[in-house]
Each structure stands twice: as C-alpha cells, then as structure tokens.
C-alpha cells in the first residue's frame, strides 16, 4: 500500500468468527496472526494491529460473555505474540449464532481501523500474509485482496498479470475499511455461512473497487480430502451452499438460473436438497426474495455451478 510521505502506516484490524472452535485451535490461529502482524509492522506495512474474535458458540470460549468487548489481557496464555504483533485482542461472545456474515457485521460495527482482515479461525497465517496483502492494496483502485489458500488452493481463475478475480474468498481477504462501510458489510439477511463473500465482492466491484488475488499472500486453511480425493464438507456447509445456488442468481437478476437451480434441488435425491428447496419455494411464494441488482450483469458470473471461471474443478473425475 503506497501512501504519501509522512502519512502513518494504516491501522489493521483482524477479525474472525468462531463457532465451537477448540481453544487450542484459537490459540494456534492467534499465534500465526500475531507473527504475521509483527512482520508487517516491522516492515512498516501497517501501524497498529488489533485482533477481534467474535464467538457464535452457545457458550463463551474465553472469559465472560455478553455483548461488551472483553479485551484479553496481554500475557494471557501466550504473552510474546500478543506483545509483539498485536496491540490488543478482543473477544466478544455474541450470545447467538450469527453465522459468518452476521458475526463479521457485528464486529464491523466498532471498526475504526483503516484496513480489515477477514479470516476464518480454521486457518494459519503465513508470516508474510499481512505484508503481502497490504502490498496488494498499492493500487488505489483495489479494494479487496484475497490470499492464496493451502494446502487446497481455490480453483477460481484470476488474471495472471493483474490478479483481478471475480470474488474473494471469505476464508481470508483484506479489505479497505471504506469498502466495508460503502457497501454496508456482508448481507447477513440473505447469507449466513456461504455466498456472503461472493456477494460482498460483487457489490464492492459494483461500487467501483477491484478485487484481486495475490498468490504470494499465503494462508493455510484446514481443508481435508476424503478417501477418494473429494474435499470434505459438513452438512451445514452443504446446506448453505445449496441455498446460495438459488439466492445468488436471484439477487443478481438471473431468475432463470435461480429457478433452474431450485428445480434441480427439488429433483435431487437427497433429503437435504429437497428441504432447502421447499424453504426457498416458500420464500418465493411469500415474496420474501431479495431485490435484484446488477441488471446489466456487469459483475455477476455464473459458470456452471460456480460464480467465476475456474481453472479446474474439485468435482472433476
């Protein structure tokens, strides 16, 4: 990120939303974020750095619950990383499962920083993650920078020269705070767990910002393979993913695709798909579907079952 001489480096907030995340996983996550922030601070890429942990779990993970931010005292458990990379760590138990979109929106409310790193708790930040992502914002037209995931890279295509890509995965992206404010964060009314990042990116692009992929910004995302090489996904992920297949084209004025996806869900052999289909059919009948945007299809991309051109598919034989 280039800035005029004499301007202080941008402040950063890192925020993540937990749901029944094991404490040791949170600790590992925090260590990695701390090291990445420390390196970025030493290089002058960022100034202050704060970690916000929101928790949608039924019971609080750390300290007291409630709506008030609970600063985790420096030195609690892992003093060196808190002292080195992070100025403060805040923990906020939501008292309800807000989902990924709702949780991040709740955390956005208190945002005063220049930049925000949205990142999953089942990740481990590479040391250069933050510095590389901030470098991706050197071009003032770039609003969102996405990291490269390991060990299973996202198959979404990007321009090899500019990094431009259709959308940024919410597993890990850095956004300018002004982008978040301009578009109002995630659409938590429409999206709970999946599709919120696609919608966020497309609305950012509609607002004039570019979304880019940066391969040198690495993030480990704990995805695993089944015995036959398929990415393992929980039932919740599958359910929300199915819902998004209808909601996203509906929102982006492709009602034809939305209805085709709905018909496919209704005809699917599994109970989960049919349950989601019934729910969506009821919403359509009740007139409870989102208002369409992007009428000229400037940003939205629907390529087979994906929301961008893909270099390959994890569903390939």
């Amino acid at each position: 990120m280039t800035r005029p001489a004499g301007t202080p480096p941008p402040s950063l907030r890192v925020q993540t939303v937990l749901y029944r995340t094991p404490p040791e996983a949170v600790d590992r996550f925090r260590q990695a974020v701390s090291a990445a922030c420390a390196l970025a601070r030493r290089s002058g890429a960022i100034g202050s750095a704060t970690l916000w942990i929101g928790d949608s779990s039924p019971a609080p993970l750390v300290g007291a619950g409630g709506e008030s931010p609970v600063p985790v005292p420096t030195g609690a458990g892992a003093p060196e990383e808190v002292a080195d990379g992070l100025d403060q760590v805040h923990y906020l138990h939501f008292g309800a499962n807000l989902g990924s979109a709702g949780g991040h929106n709740r955390l956005f409310r208190d945002m005063t920083e220049d930049l925000v790193l949205v990142v999953n708790p089942d990740t481990y930040a590479a040391p250069r993650l933050v510095a590389e992502l901030v470098a991706g914002l050197a071009d003032p037209t770039v609003g969102v920078v996405e990291a490269r995931q390991l060990p299973l890279e996202h198959p979404k295509a990007h321009d090899p020269e500019t990094g431009d890509t259709s959308w940024a995965s919410g597993s890990c992206f850095l956004a300018r705070a002004q982008v978040v404010r301009a578009i109002g964060g995630f659409d938590a009314r429409l999206f709970f767990l999946h599709g919120d990042d696609v919608d966020f990116s497309w609305r950012a692009r509609l607002a004039g910002w570019r979304v880019v992929h940066r391969p040198t910004a690495r993030i480990f995302h704990d995805k695993r393979l089944s015995d036959d090489g398929v990415i393992l996904a929980g039932e919740g992920e599958l359910e929300h993913s199915a819902r998004v297949r209808v909601l996203l084209p509906w929102r982006y004025d492709r009602r034809d695709l939305a209805l085709a996806a709905l018909a496919a869900l209704e005809a699917a052999p599994d109970e989960l798909s049919r349950r989601v289909a019934a729910e969506l059919r009821a919403r359509i009948d009740a007139g409870d579907m989102p208002e369409a945007i992007d009428h000229d299809h400037v940003v939205a991309q629907f390529v087979r079952a994906d929301y961008a051109e893909h270099r390959f598919s994890y569903a390939d034989p």
Binding site: E153, P215, T216, L225, D227, D228, G229, R311, F312, A315
Partner: peptide, 20 residues
C-alpha cells in the same frame, strides 16, 4: 511452474484437482 510470475520470483499454480 510460473517462472518469474510472482513479482519477479518463480511461482506456480495448481492445474488440477488432487487425485488419490
């Protein structure tokens, strides 16, 4: 392999899904 593609350093890209 993507020689020189990552800001002048050698990079690479994944070209297919993993197979067991």
């Amino acid at each position: 392999a993507l020689p020189g593609a990552w800001g002048g350093t050698d990079g690479y890209e994944v070209a297919g899904r993993p197979h067991v």
